[in-house]
Write a protein that binds this DNA or RNA. Structure first.
Lengths: 218, 218
DNA sequence: GTCTATATCGTGATAGAC
DNA sequence: GTCTATCACGATATAGAC
């Protein structure tokens, strides 16, 4: 009776097990990713430990290694995960372009003030990544290159110049740099540093300056 | 015979030993400090090890602890040592003020390009210092506050405004931030980032912008 | 002043029970 | 899928010989 259709009885619970735990696995993975984001932000990658991450999510460090294989792969997953979340948020705002995107950067600075953990993670990890053969080195090199070109594009639109104009490229690099540098200052001394207004000042100053030199050329 | 004047024989070599080794001790200490600067820059504080520093200077890690007591005190000594060197260099240039100091910042960016190790040390350690109870946290908080006020002073002189004018203070924070943020970008991608010209652009843009708003007020 | 030796701890990772 | 147990390794720091 019970053995009448052994294949089905084996297959059906097997399928159920493959479905259910995989759902829970996905949840578990994101829980781990969030805990890892917090720990890497609070301690850096090198001294942030799997044990501490495991404690936050209520398991042992062996469990984490089961899901991600190694600490290094966990770090890369954390970074990729944050980028996905960012893209989703950008989609919500319907990807502003030109001057609107620059305003968006200021808005991001405000939004970020409420999410210290993520800011801290990126500030700490991006600087740590310049050290000898850090696992996130390529990630951050690509990320900065991407941000520079993104800002250059919208800066070009805003002031009426080519995105590959050297002045525009340099200006884009400067805006990205100021934003990141501010985050470190703000994390160390939130009372004396106001991110949104300072980002605003930098963008205003650079856009004005750029408009003038571009107009003078024509 | 040999014990005729034990006090003198004990005292004289004692005095010689107190003088000579102390000279060598000072040299040894600075050698350790330089090695530590390189290692902390290349690996960060947390994963830079005393053993690696010791190897670079040709001794064991126990010797380093003899000189500095603990790894933490060594770090603070490294930071203090660099600041002394900076002050000396600033004295050589006879402490420029006002617009001249802002030019000096650009010059510093050029000079720094030749000294990757030190730049890296500061970029890595300043970001690492925002992590939970890092030993250098207070050092960097004070350092950033000092740089902001220094830049604000000379910015005020350059554009004819008070150093405590909110716009000047914000602008100073922005210049410091851009400089630091650029260092990380440059360390990751020296080919695509030119520090001196970008610092120059930021300063020019901000000084112009500031002059305009200050003049408009009067 | 520098060494060797050792204590103590924490790390990432693996193996295997359940 | 998560656990316990264990491994191999490297860290800071201390004690004491020389």
């Amino acid at each position: 009776m019970a053995t009448t259709f052994p294949e089905t009885t084996r297959i059906v619970p097997g399928a159920a097990k493959a479905a259910k735990p995989q759902m829970r696995t996905a949840e578990r993975r994101t829980a781990i990713l969030e805990a890892a984001t917090a720990v890497f932000g609070a301690r850096g990658y090198n001294s942030g430990s799997l044990v501490e991450i495991a404690e936050q999510v209520g398991m042992t460090h062996a469990g984490i290694l089961h899901h991600f294989g190694s600490k290094e792969q966990l770090l890369l997953a954390v970074l990729a995960h944050r980028d996905e979340a960012d893209l989703e948020r950008l989609d919500e705002h319907q990807s502003p372009v030109g001057a609107a995107y620059l305003d968006h950067l200021v808005h991001t600075a405000q939004y970020s003030a409420e999410r210290v953990a993520i800011i801290k993670t990126y500030a700490v990890l991006s600087a740590e990544s310049v050290t000898g053969n850090h696992p996130a080195q390529e990630f951050f090199r690509d990320r900065f290159a991407g941000m520079r070109s993104r800002v250059a594009t919208d800066l070009g639109l805003a002031v009426g110049a080519d995105a590959d104009d050297p002045r525009v490229v340099t200006a884009a690099s400067a805006i990205v740099a100021a934003t990141d540098g501010l985050q470190v200052q703000w994390l160390l001394d939130p009372v004396h540093v106001d991110m949104p207004s300072t980002v605003q000042l930098v963008i205003d100053a650079i856009v004005e300056n750029l408009r003038r030199t571009v107009d003078a050329q024509q």
